[in-house]
Design a protein around this nucleic acid. Structure first.
Lengths: 200, 200
DNA sequence: CTATAATGTGAGTGAATATTCACTTACATA
DNA sequence: TATGTAAGTGAATATTCACTCACATTATAG
């Protein structure tokens, strides 16, 4: 898997800070990401953060922007490479879960009520990430129906939401099991159950 | 649907406060539940809260305790009344969603990282609610397998998680659609897809 | 009617938090 | 050598937040 865009220049200070921020969010939640904690994790003093980001909000916003960018690249890649649309769905779930396994903090940002309800602009960004993903999923599912791999009567929107829900479910289960079970195993079983339900 | 236990004495001040708290959490998230906001919503001054609850943490804890109690009652009721285990699953999803439609704040508490990661004891309570529900689901699914209504080779734990995930998925979709679509319609379609995948 | 308990008020405290600011240091480049 | 720049420092500031306390009001039971 390619590194997310903001990790492609790992020597940059911004990259360091974001890595630290995501680690903190992963471990202590969005609420745990305080400027003080962040400074401690990065290894500088609180005020130094503002050399790199205008505000804490700006930091989150920056991360979200890059996710959107990356998400798009990843998805395009899968679409391009995979002929079989059923296989594409399998690829997609692995792609998402690999990503989340590496950067669980991103997942927490997206699903965080604290961010979502706290800031209209960030809320819009998150909405855009989600709807980008959903409309992509719908496209894949539509294609699978056309190829007669999935049921013809399927409600495409619900099927897409259901699929996205699997990712959340796998992540929850993974968390519940203290991350001791490999995500791939969980998701594989889930996906089988899902596909059985929607297959033609 | 019966009222949750803590609403059965709606004349009590505690009931008023909890109603207000849940409304705030629903609208502004767990982060939005500040003592100041709560006081404003209830219609008294901040310090008055402490006549009724030892602390804000105590308020949350009280709510969780009552959910646990109620969850148990509801689940027992479904188990008792419903013979057909497949029908029980359908009843369960409606039960959960009705509950969430009425008290979305409760859902947000349970899924809130802020609470979950912030307080060990509350975390334990939430864990208990979740595992209570999951073990109940596993029991129902096991029974359905015995009755040969569900696949014999099914991974019961994954099937239970998947089912619980449907509730989250329905709730997310409902939120995404600004609550303009009835939850029941969404969940019905989801459940069909789910059942197709696990049915014998 | 009065004593008591329940409930509410207003003022205030301390801790946490994000942010600003003036100043420094290391290094690169003209 | 002079100057610009990226990064960091330490102190200060404003705000928010949960919580306390002494005092006031209201309701109710004897």
């Amino acid at each position: 898997m390619k590194r997310p865009a903001f990790f492609q220049t790992p020597e940059s200070r911004k990259g360091d800070i974001i890595t630290a921020a995501l680690r903190i969010i992963d471990q202590r939640g969005v609420k745990g990401l305080t400027v003080s904690q962040l400074a401690q994790e990065v290894g500088f003093v609180e005020s130094a953060l503002y050399r790199h980001f205008k505000s804490k909000r700006d930091l989150i916003s920056f991360i979200l922007d890059n996710i959107l960018q990356d998400a798009w690249n990843y998805l395009a890649e899968v679409e391009e490479k995979t002929e079989d649309s059923l296989e594409a769905l399998r690829q997609l779930i692995y792609l998402f879960l690999n990503f989340l396994e590496q950067f669980p903090g991103i997942f927490k940002i997206i699903y965080s009520d604290e961010i979502y309800l706290g800031d209209r602009e960030l809320q819009d960004k998150i909405d855009r990430v989600i709807s980008e993903i959903i409309s992509f999923l719908k496209k894949v599912i539509q294609k699978a129906i056309t190829q007669k791999k999935l049921k013809s009567g399927l409600d495409i929107t619900v099927a897409a939401m259901h699929f996205l829900g699997l990712i959340y479910t796998a992540f929850s289960y993974w968390t519940l099991k203290k991350r001791r079970v490999p995500l791939k195993r969980i998701s594989s079983e889930l996906l089988d159950q899902y596909l059985e339900g929607v297959r033609a």
